[in-house]
């Protein structure tokens, strides 16, 4: 059981959280966005081994936030609310 840190609620069990995707995945608006850019946004991921920066949601309070952690050791480095993180960019 990992412990994640919700910026609102503090340390909580991993089972209360849901993975929202990699941070900084910008959405290209428009029906004419190039197909590969749209595919990049929808599907392509860095998926790094080691340090990661991700959007998570604490399902109990509904807060989306950015978490930095290590995808191998599972060490959690930081949690920042979406506002603080500049809309996950």
């Amino acid at each position: 059981m990992q412990l994640f840190h919700c910026p609102f609620c503090g340390a909580r069990d991993e089972t209360e959280f849901h993975f929202g995707g990699e941070a900084g995945n910008l959405r290209p608006d428009g029906a004419d966005a190039p197909a590969d850019r749209w595919a990049n946004y929808l599907y392509m991921r860095d998926n790094p081994k080691g340090a990661v920066r991700e959007v998570w949601v604490h399902m109990n309070c509904g807060e989306f936030f950015v978490m930095e952690r290590d995808s191998v050791s599972h060490q959690v480095l930081s949690s920042t609310s979406l506002d603080g993180a500049g809309h996950a960019q």
């Binding site: 929202g20 959405r27 399902m59 809309h87």
Partner: peptide, 10 residues
Amino acid sequence: ARLEEWRQDR
């Protein structure tokens, strides 16, 4: 959850 996500992120 989707509504919240778009609300908070967009």
